[in-house]
């Protein structure tokens, strides 16, 4: 493993070197919050902002994407897949919780006999430059769900903000390839590494860690009919924001849109928090109220997914806690479940 140092003022140039070889997506200042977007120059990237409003999900599994074009021609119908034979991609400045979100997404979309090609194609050519999280927020709880603000899961190169410079930890072969030919790096000293270590400890300390989570999945298995579900959803207005912002909510809808030459088949985010999500042709709805829908979202993350993949489907990024219009707090739900 190689550890380097780069001065902060050299970072735009470093990104520019990457842009020569990759399409680079980095956090940019979108007004009140940061957003991960493709950058044309290193100077657009803004690493000092808090974790983007939307996770890296929006790049690899965008809110809307064309998955098929159908041409209505003289000789009938022809289907055509959109192909992106462009450069490889780099997601730059991804927080460890969101990198973990991608690892969980990989498990799901790559599982079973049917691989999700639209996601896998993009994911397969994407490298991740992570950014360790020095200042976890009050809503963050990654450490309670198996993550860490300095976590390395799913990351090819990890940056640690040391104030005037970044420590650069090259973690994978992909990381090596990315950094090839980038100038202005020097070897990290023992002192640099000690400083990074100290920041990691401080970040861990700043995090909430009292969330009881031991045995949560097993406990939920027997709780489908528990009266708890009658209460926990009551203030939820079903807006779906929690799912849209969540790095581990992947439900989608598929719709057709007519164009002048044919049809575009589009997939778009959907959520189990919407009434119509499970409404059947007969008019029957197996999840008719907020109770069933909140139960489904909670069960998916903390019971069904762990049962299948051995890991909780929540990264503790805190987005659903921060952005819910009625202050629904998934940590409170967990506490209630654990105290039944």
């Amino acid at each position: 493993m190689k550890i380097k140092i780069v001065d902060k003022k050299e970072v735009p140039a470093l990104i520019d070197r990457l842009i020569e070889r990759y399409r680079v997506f980095a956090p940019v200042d979108a007004g009140k919050y940061a957003r991960l977007m493709e950058v044309a120059s290193g100077s657009e990237a803004c690493l000092e902002l808090q974790n983007p409003k939307l996770s890296s999900k929006e790049i690899l599994f965008p809110q809307t994407e064309i998955i098929l074009r159908i041409k209505k021609g003289e000789e009938g119908l022809e289907t055509e897949e959109p192909s992106e034979n462009d450069k490889d991609w780099v997601l730059f400045g991804v927080h460890p919780c969101d990198a973990k979100g991608l690892v969980l997404t990989d498990k799901f979309f790559a599982s079973g006999d049917y691989k999700d090609k639209p996601y896998m194609d993009k994911r397969g050519k994407t490298s991740i430059v992570g950014l360790a999280c020095n200042h976890p927020r009050a809503t963050c709880f990654c450490a309670s769900v198996g993550g860490s603000p300095f976590g390395k899961e799913g990351i090819d190169i990890l940056l640690v903000d040391l104030g005037e410079e970044y420590l650069i930890e090259i973690l994978t072969e992909r990381g090596e390839r990315m950094i090839e030919g980038v100038h202005g790096l020097r070897d990290a000293s023992d002192d640099d590494m000690a400083r990074a270590e100290k920041m990691s400890e401080e970040a861990e300390k700043a995090l909430q860690t009292d969330l009881p989570i031991e045995g949560l999945s097993e406990r939920l298995e027997g709780m489908f009919e528990d009266p708890l579900w009658d209460k926990v959803h009551l203030k939820c207005v079903g807006c779906g924001v929690c799912s849209y912002l969540c790095p581990t909510c992947w439900c989608f809808d598929i719709i057709d849109e007519e164009t002048s030459t044919g049809v575009e088949r589009i997939r778009l985010w959907d959520t189990c928090q919407f009434t119509q999500f499970t409404l059947q042709g007969s008019g029957f709805n197996p999840r008719p109220s907020g109770k069933e829908r909140m139960r489904q979202r909670t069960m998916h993350k903390f019971c069904y997914f762990p049962k299948e993949y051995g890991v909780l489907a929540c990264t503790g990024c805190g987005r659903c806690v921060r952005e819910c219009p009625v202050n629904q707090d998934i940590r409170e739900t967990i506490k209630e479940i654990m105290s039944v």
Binding site: F108, F109, S111, G112, D113, Y114, D116, F224, W250, C251, F252, D253, I254, D270, C272, F277, T278, L279, Q280, G281, S282, P286, Q296, M299, H300, C303, Y304, K307, E308
Partner: peptide, 24 residues
């Protein structure tokens, strides 16, 4: 079982009953 389905291949997330996907 008849559930609402969009993908048919266990990905769109809407046909599950517990941890089982009705489509798969």
């Amino acid at each position: 079982l008849e559930m609402r389905m969009k993908c048919g291949i266990g990905k769109c997330g809407r046909c599950n009953v517990g941890s089982k996907f009705v489509c798969l």
